[in-house]
Amino acid sequence: MLIETRDLFIHLGQRLVLEDINMGVEKGEIVTIIGPNGSGKSTLLRALIGAVKPTSGQVLRSPGVAIGYVPQRLHIDETLPMSVRRFMSLPHRPAQEELNAAMSAAGVSGLGQQQVMSLSGGQFQRVLLARALLEKPDLLLLDEATQGLDHRGSAGFYQQIESVRQELGCAVIMVSHELHVVMRRSDRVICLNGHVCCQGLPEVVSVSPEYQSLFALDQDEETVYMHRDHHAYSHK
């Protein structure tokens, strides 16, 4: 395991947000965490990077594992002047070639001199991805990285992730509510609602009663996508 949690409980203020979470990621695996709003998805990710302290339980990282983190849409205050290049060299200034390589891997070559504020949502997410790649991650953490992007933008972004993963061979943990995209691309799905409702192969999770009841409202949309997915799987 690159990273795993053991009996993880987390309170934010008085509220119990995560309850008895046991999960982990193997080398090279793509794991997706899905769940309704307020189900603790982001909190779980933030616990994995050490930004939230568990009330009890543990987050275990295998020694020396490098983590790249792409946060949910990041707001940068307009009073802070920041070029893309400068932003990527925080906190450590990388070598010129490394910087260029990461930017081209994330599909943002040539944006280096631009101000971060002037980027479109999709460009900014790719810059965040490029910055995460600088760490040469064994594990990439993406927190709703495509929120606010339109359908094409998010499809393009996931494509980029896919090619990055093939290049680096890193594991990926994604948080998403775009069920259709997620189901297709993951090796394993964790369905979260304060606790782990169910986890396993996408095909297994999508037919489980827990998943069905959690996403009952999305049923219509889901049936269509899942239908297409089953189709895709049967051709493999």
């Binding site: 933030r46 990077i49 930004a51 983190y69 990041l74 906190p91």
Partner: peptide, 17 residues
């Protein structure tokens, strides 16, 4: 300087680094 800037940009990015 660098740490301060990163923490100013986003606390989670800072944690991750």
């Amino acid at each position: 300087w660098s740490g301060l800037l990163l923490a100013t940009l986003n606390p989670d990015l800072a944690h991750a680094s």
